[in-house]
Write a protein that binds this DNA or RNA. Structure first.
Lengths: 201, 201
DNA sequence: TCGATACGATACGTTACCGTATCGGATCTC
DNA sequence: GAGATCCGATACGGTAACGTATCGTATCGA
């Protein structure tokens, strides 16, 4: 992490060691505030207050806001269910339903949307988020699509990336603020529409 | 608009009338700064500076930032090409290519992404943006899809909304910061994948 | 011409957050 | 126990934007 050099050398520094508990509280508070107010709205003083920590304890570890956010975002997990269904259709359905569920949580939605919007201002942060959260999820879906092309459940010459973004995007475009929440059954409709195609037989 | 009551009564108020030119400059500067920094990053002093206007000239018309933004966003247009192609496929292709092009412009992308991310903090602003920009565009695409279902170019029982969001979302999910720019031919790949479906024949 | 209002400019006090410094107490190693 | 470092707390000066007030000038109706 962005912290001092003890880990690098392996040696112990003299004096009181840094509190692991404080560090966890800081990261946790950072992620919570990130989801609430976005990267631009996040401020160190609020992080310190929520973490129950002095400002100095933060500045001792990270030089500034962006470095703190960078480490915080790296701690995010991407809890998409590992697909182990029987059919490709069932796997896609489970993945898409999990996405719908996550985006229905206003907290996750905000986290994603805020980072998306602020990507231009914080490019390193956006890159880290992509590596940590977004790309692993995409890869899970890509794997299912490729598997389908091999087993014959999907067209052999399927355009994996186009299909990937159609799936992900259908949830993303639907889950905007101001729209009605995604209704149950939406994932199934998308998957079936993708499988059968919209063209006439 | 949010301005004073002369329009409502139709009567002229005594004294020097408000400058139409200043009002236009303010709205224009607001939209420019909105695209650059988002709603949260926008500040009245910068709007005044860019518009070449005193702060009082802004506060005389709008009580605060959100009301100004509300009027500014209402002035946005949604320049999707009116489809008048020969086939449904050509129309969808043209619409999707126009979307790709617009999202390739960093300015439009930021405008959209920033508003999306800040939707939670400015719900009225988000609603206005949806009414003015987003929903009209969706309706154009819906109309083409419905037409296809009638003419037989598309399946008769097509799920219009699912298909709509798959189309829009494929561009949206692909056009993130940190990703490579959308390559030419992407729109065609999406449209053809949607028409044929990814399921095996 | 005169009163009323708007204009751009600028000064003002307020608030929020920045990053730094310092405090007394706590917790490590030697 | 001595020295070093960290702890949470808080004070500090600096900066940015807030929204209000006040300039002298400009432009309208009566």
């Amino acid at each position: 992490m962005g912290t001092a050099s003890t880990a690098a050398t392996g040696q112990r520094r003299p004096g009181r060691p840094r509190s692991e508990r404080a560090e966890r509280a800081i990261i946790e508070a950072t992620l919570a505030l990130l989801a609430e107010s976005g990267a631009a709205g996040l401020c160190i003083e609020k992080v310190a207050a929520r973490a129950g920590v002095g400002k100095a304890t933060i500045y001792r570890r990270w030089p500034g806001k962006e470095d703190l956010l960078l480490d915080a975002v790296a701690c995010l997990k991407a809890p998409l269910p590992e697909p182990r269904g029987l059919s490709v259709r069932d796997d896609l359905l489970a993945l898409l339903e999990a996405m719908c569920e996550q985006f229905a949580d206003p907290c996750h939605m905000r986290e994603f949307a805020l980072l998306l919007g602020e990507g231009a201002a914080y490019p390193r942060l956006m890159t880290r988020y992509t590596e940590t959260v977004i790309e692993p999820r995409r890869e899970v879906i890509r794997a299912v699509l490729r598997r389908g092309a091999v087993t014959g459940e999907l067209r052999e010459d399927i355009d994996v990336d186009a299909a990937l973004f159609m799936m992900i995007g259908s949830v993303l475009a639907r889950s905007r603020y101001g729209d009605a929440p995604v209704e149950p059954g939406y994932a199934r409709r998308v998957v079936d529409e993708m499988l059968s195609g919209i063209g006439a037989r």
